[in-house]
Write a protein that binds this DNA or RNA. Sequence first.
DNA 1: CGCCTAGTTGAAGTGTGTCAATGTCTGTGG
DNA 2: CCACAGACATTGACACACTTCAACTAGGCG
Lengths: 239, 239
Amino acid sequence: MNGPQPRIPVLTTRLSGDADEGGRLDAVLSAEDLRRLEGIASVLELPARNRLIYDQGQAAEALYFIQRGMVATSVHDGDGSRQILGFLRSGDLFGLAEQGRYISAARTLTPARLFCLPLAPLQKLLLTDARLQLHFLTKAAHDLRMAQRQMIVLGRHSVHRRLAAFLLEFLRHDDIYDAAEQRIRLPMSRTDMADYLATTPESVARAFAAMEREGWIRRYGPKSIQVLDLPALIHAASV
Amino acid sequence: MNGPQPRIPVLTTRLSGDADEGGRLDAVLSAEDLRRLEGIASVLELPARNRLIYDQGQAAEALYFIQRGMVATSVHDGDGSRQILGFLRSGDLFGLAEQGRYISAARTLTPARLFCLPLAPLQKLLLTDARLQLHFLTKAAHDLRMAQRQMIVLGRHSVHRRLAAFLLEFLRHDDIYDAAEQRIRLPMSRTDMADYLATTPESVARAFAAMEREGWIRRYGPKSIQVLDLPALIHAASV
DNA sequence: CGCCTAGTTGAAGTGTGTCAATGTCTGTGG
DNA sequence: CCACAGACATTGACACACTTCAACTAGGCG
């Protein structure tokens, strides 16, 4: 008798990725799972944007779980160049480290609420709760797929195509995309977008200008984009 | 009393990545772990190079574990373009899927021996053995780091730098690098290298020619490279 | 209202893809 | 063992997308 087993993960669908779940860890965690995580977590309230959560090279002591808000992780090269590894949202995990040090820096894009999960207690919990751990494994597999997809995007696609794909990613998220007005509210700067898409702010601006010229979008200031021709945008992202 | 606990993973070092382990799953698995995996695995002997293991889009039924040999995973775009996601070696896992279908194709670069781990029994095993699962989670975290590093390489570095870094990766592996002769035996074609580095065979050839012109390497046929100036190569990979 | 940061647009330079031709391996069959 | 064929690798010429540098404009916050 195991009692009720809410949302038992199935590796064939979980490791394989489930469409409706979208890689959100919080969507698959049961109330019991969350309670256990909260038991070892400390809550981190970051009331403003552009707050550093941890820096690259800093001793890694915790994994972070986003409850609310948006976070960007970035690695800084020896020279000035910076690569944003990902824009993360509620349900995402971050805090990947190598040899005890964070490989990237993390900072808020918006006010955010995080669970800070210290590594030692987290490991203990995962070892005692294999079902919970499988959710973490599934999430890691999902993030690996995303990273591999981004490898392809950065290596093979033009800047225009990268930007089109980037915009389309936001359409799924209600907090950023207002479906009624067809408007995307971008929470990051042109420089951030450029550092994520491995290009320059100038090229991003030019790509936006070209999209507006074609009638696919309309800009209301740099942070607000109205989608006028979604099919064209989808086409641009896949050609 | 838990009895002997060989090589208990410590998340703070394992999820964080351990230098000497190098992400090799087989290096951290105990004899008991291996026995259990073998219990659900079928062994796959692939006697020659260029053998397809599974194709992109095929129904995903198993995860694969490389015991011997080398494997390449690649995704094929609608048009002719191909991206090799990774060159994999003993101890590596592959078979990542999305919605029940493999997202990449996998084929041998050399004769290989694989464990084929059917997903359902594997999930069952991981749920009953949290310690073993943690090794898988650690491996996934390692692969995620590698993918993120490759994102940076493909997005930010020149073809010359990419190739230098690529060559340096082989120096650690005894089966490919003959330290005495300082020779690297490349098991893949120029096209494969180009598809991994997100460039063209022509650009790879030009980068090799430039390195030879500089006196850093010497080519003995396309598959055998002698390293003449390692510091210069290291410098080229990090500038 | 004015300063300062961020964004946009323009012009010029360059790395790399593309196309084409030549050269070189490899493996097969005579 | 050699000769041949087909694939693979290399080199060259050219085109172009993108970066870089610079000037200008627009937003946002004091």
